[in-house]
Write a protein that binds this DNA or RNA. Structure first.
Length: 562
DNA sequence: GCCGTTTTCGGCCCGACTGTTTTCAGTCG
């Protein structure tokens, strides 16, 4: 219900913008929507007083939530919807077209959809419209193209590859260069790439950045391009002295920055991408490093992955920023495949690659027989175990399997056979549409199996392709904590599963996690940083993650008190 | 609409770029 209410509040905010409503009210509805989306408890269970404890939720929004709980609708939202002419909300989704001019197009030309708008431009009906010159028309036409291509956010690996190539190209031309924005925060999908550079003269950087690209906008401080793949990228150039303030600013999130600047204002200071200044005199105080900026505001440095205005600022003020798990904390990978099932590399190749990564231990977990297409048999699995036992110099090899969790929560093998494995991951691979109660029982049964150590890719979502299964997360988390079953943070950029919101809630319930690559090839072993970034967004420390533990502690956990 | 290290009222982040505005509004992040 949290997700649902958050979406309605966001819509309320968007529609309020279109009607020209108070911008601060809009901002507050957006803030409340964000808070509710990430709130650990189901808001349907909360009374008015508990609702108002959510940041940004006061009397009015709490009443709207209660109304939705009882009636399934919000009257004020329905009224607002009725006031907006059809199609205007869609028009505002066209890049370059905001609420004012969308309303104008609807009012003066009767445009009711993006298709209408495209036709109107073609027919020359925008000519002579106040505020719409030839350039505007051109800009909107190109915005419509972008809108029609879906302007989808891209997955982390695509964004990281693109951004890294840009940084590599610009680094020789600048004093410093780095990517910032949502990519630096490890958000699960990326809408735009933000590149920051420090240089005395921005012109050579802007020229190199723009070369051969579609330029959306360009000035001395900022250039925006659209790459051939349709991804928008910004380059901002600042003086080297402003590096820290600029990096802080361009890393975001917007909500985090707004909150940080409010703190500055309270201290009679002003924070911009150029530095922290005295409000009265504009005298520069600090700007060189992020640490200085945060410190002068009375805050510990905040890791980018936490910068979402979800409690990190309070934590930084109180010195309670957790020591987050990092890539080099990981001592091994606990979920990988070989060409015995659907992997593309041999056992020897995968193990050699694991050794090159410097792991202390490594689990081979090919699919079990219930995934019929993998053609696994007891004999093949036991033969692989012999091979694994014979390998392993310089690296502790664990022989495991990825079990299939059946619709009733049962897994592929009986206890006797399962006892032979060092580790068992268990995952849902089918029957995704089960009702919530059945799905919850299914997961809990799997957790209660004394040989199931890790629930693999728990929500089974594929980002942008397959929705998460419906499950009572509170009950699942309690079952994991009670039975000593870890939840996987699957590092594949297509999955990132468990997602970070649920990670944080699960951690609060006492759950442990395994950050796994689920690699089906040598190169996919390199996906771990996406999992670590996701874990950081869930506020995890090394102690929360079983594959940062020394082997003996890990082995004790895997015994599950048997 | 929310909220309190000056406040229960009066604020609410800050700047870049574009276009057509002769002094600034709209849009974006």
């Amino acid at each position: 219900m949290n997700e649902q209410v958050a979406a309605l509040l966001r819509e309320y905010a968007e529609l309020t913008v279109i009607t020209g409503g108070d911008v601060f009210r809009v901002r507050n509805y957006e803030k409340a929507a964000r808070s509710i989306r990430g709130w650990p408890e189901d808001i349907a269970q909360l009374d008015l007083k508990a609702l108002r404890a959510i940041p940004g939720v006061g009397a009015s929004i709490a009443a709207k939530i209660a109304e939705f709980s009882q009636t399934g609708a919000i009257g004020a939202l329905d009224e607002l919807r009725a006031k907006i002419p059809p199609g205007v909300l869609e028009l505002t989704r066209v890049p370059g077209l905001g609420p004012r001019r969308a309303m104008q197009l609807s009012r003066e030309l009767g445009v009711q959809s993006v298709d209408d708008l495209a036709a109107a431009i073609k027919a020359g009906r925008l000519d002579g419209l106040a505020g719409f010159g030839a350039k505007s028309e051109e800009r909107i036409a190109s915005g419509i193209e972008v809108y029609r291509q879906g302007r989808e956010r891209v997955l982390l690996d695509v964004a990281l590859r693109t951004a890294t190539a840009m940084v590599d190209e610009l680094t020789p031309l600048s004093q410093r260069c780095a990517y910032a924005g949502s990519l630096r925060r490890w958000r699960e999908t990326i809408g735009d790439i933000d590149i920051l550079a420090a240089a005395g003269d921005s012109a050579p950087l802007m020229a190199a950045f723009s070369a051969g690209q579609e330029v959306v906008g360009s000035g001395p401080a900022k250039t925006t391009i659209r790459t051939a793949s349709g991804l928008t990228a910004d380059l901002r150039v600042v003086p080297l002295d402003a590096w820290g303030a600029a990096l802080q600013y361009f890393t975001g999130s917007t909500a985090h920055n707004v909150a940080i600047r409010q703190i500055a204002i309270r201290q009679k200071l002003k924070l911009s991408e150029y530095g922290l200044f005295e409000a009265d005199t504009d005298r520069l105080i600090v700007s060189r490093t992020e640490e200085e900026v945060y410190a002068r505001l009375g805050l510990a440095w905040i890791p980018p992955a936490l910068r979402e205005d979800r409690g990190e600022i309070e934590a930084a003020a109180q010195g309670r920023i957790p020591g987050l798990v990092r890539d080099n904390d990981l001592r091994g990978d606990l979920h990988t495949h070989t060409d015995l099932t659907d992997g593309t590399a041999s056992l020897e190749q995968m193990v050699a690659a694991a050794r090159r990564r410097g792991y202390e231990y490594y689990a081979v977990t090919d699919h079990a027989p219930d995934l019929i297409m993998q053609r696994m048999t007891d004999e093949k699995m036991l033969a692989q175990r012999d091979q694994v036992r014979a390998l392993g110099a310089g690296l502790e090899l664990l022989h495991g399997t990825e079990l299939n969790i059946g619709p009733d929560g049962s897994v592929d093998w009986e206890a006797g056979f399962l006892a032979g494995f060092d580790i068992c991951v268990a995952s849902v691979h089918s029957h995704f549409e089960q009702p919530r109660a059945e799905m919850t029982r299914r997961f809990v049964t799997a957790c209660e199996n004394p040989y199931v150590n890790v629930i693999g890719h728990p929500t089974t979502r594929r980002i942008g392709k397959r929705p998460p299964v419906k499950v009572d997360f509170g009950e699942l988390f309690r079952a994991c904590a009670r039975t000593g079953t870890a939840l996987e943070i699957n590092a594949s950029p297509q999955r990132l599963d468990l997602p970070s919101d649920q990670i944080r809630a699960a951690r609060d319930a006492g759950v442990k996690f395994a950050i796994d690559s689920d690699a089906h090839s040598v190169s996919e072993l390199g996906n771990m940083p996406y999992g670590t970034g996701t874990a950081q967004r869930g506020w995890l420390t090394p102690d929360d993650v079983i594959n940062t533990w020394p082997l003996e502690r890990l082995r004790a956990f895997l015994r599950k008190d048997r």
